[in-house]
């Protein structure tokens, strides 16, 4: 039966996490404010990743002053494709992807032409903090452009699919893959029309699919089925997410990965306030898993114990999915 509103008690019984509870019970308790720069500033995140051997997109250049902007095209001479992003950007704002360059003309994967002065303007907008959290001065990162892994290519339109893993106390509790669509303008933001599919945490295989709150089975642009896709190098990805969570020392985070055709899974960014849309992708509340981890013994938070815990959480998720399907 389709209803317009769920009653709070139904949501509670289904283990749905609301924003208020996420903020008060998980973020404030688990994430010390002082550690936020580690995730809010991608430069710091990258440094931490590199120090811990976690793969990240290769950094070509970092611009911190308007003087750097003037010298910009020379600094990356020889690179045909690259990505410009603000160090402290949020929700994919201010990201400019250059797919190829011909002389002084740059072209985005979508085919838009970008002149050198356009590029400089974008860089100075990034530096002045237009796209950044808090709006203060920022740095611009120029980095390697991810070439989407062939497995994901058929479901990635005008953009790069990313994989989000939510970790609580360094234990992955839920994962999803976000697929850009024409409607979302190539960005992997769910509220703009991107598709989310749940990922089974032990196999790395996608199941189910949600677009703007509705169930979908195939990608709307390519008609390719979006369930049953196996994320390449899944175990490596999961391991990297756990190591990153440990290195960041944040209790409740979302880690975003992309899978590069050559380098495999690389960390795009981490988020100390991960959204709740993952529950929509899974069609299931996240709280049972969070509470299971909260009740875990110290042994269950490391090594083999942790793998067993992940398997247990995943089993529960599969049971839930089967139960829903049966109904």
């Amino acid at each position: 039966m389709q209803r317009f509103f769920a009653s709070p008690s139904d949501l509670r019984a289904s283990g749905i996490l609301g924003i208020n509870r996420r903020n008060l019970s998980y973020i404030i308790d688990s994430n010390p404010r002082g550690l936020y720069p580690r995730v809010d500033n991608k430069l710091i995140t990258k440094t931490i990743c590199e120090a811990n051997g976690i793969p990240v997109p290769e950094t070509y250049n970092v611009l911190t002053s308007h003087g750097d902007v003037k010298r910009f095209p020379e600094a990356i001479r020889g690179r045909n494709d690259f990505v410009v992003k603000p160090a402290r950007g949020a929700a994919g704002r201010g990201v400019l992807v250059i797919g190829e360059s011909v002389g002084n003309l740059y072209i985005t994967p979508g085919g838009r032409r970008v002149t050198v002065s356009d590029l400089r303007y974008h860089l100075s907008a990034v530096l002045s903090g237009l796209y950044s959290l808090g709006g203060g001065m920022d740095a611009a990162i120029v980095e390697h452009r991810i070439v989407t892994h062939p497995v994901l290519q058929s479901v990635a339109i005008e953009g790069t699919p990313d994989i989000r893993v939510i970790l609580y106390r360094c234990v992955p509790v839920m994962a999803m893959v976000r697929l850009p669509t024409t409607a979302s303008g190539g960005r992997a933001n769910l509220h703009q029309g991107a598709i989310a599919a749940a990922v089974d945490m032990t196999t790395g295989r996608t199941f189910g699919g949600v677009s703007k709150g509705r169930m979908v089975d195939v990608h709307p642009d390519t008609e390719v089925s979006i369930s049953g896709i196996e994320i390449p190098s899944w175990d490596q990805l999961l391991d990297a997410s756990m190591r990153l969570a440990e290195a960041l020392e944040l209790g409740y985070i979302g880690v975003d990965f992309v899978v590069d055709a050559e380098k495999g899974p690389v960390v795009l960014e981490a988020n100390a306030r991960p959204g709740l849309a993952i529950q929509v992708a899974h069609r299931r509340g996240i709280r049972p898993a969070l509470e299971r981890v909260a009740a875990a013994t110290p042994d269950e938070l490391h090594g083999k114990g942790r793998l067993a815990l992940i398997a247990e959480i995943t089993d529960e998720a599969r049971r839930h999915a089967r139960r829903r399907e049966g109904l």
């Binding site: 209803r3 509103f5 769920a6 009653s7 019984a13 289904s14 529950q279 299931r284």
Partner: peptide
């Protein structure tokens, strides 16, 4: 959220 998650209620 009562509206946003209305489909997630586990019957």
């Amino acid at each position: 959220e009562l509206w946003r998650f209305r489909d997630l209620v586990d019957p």
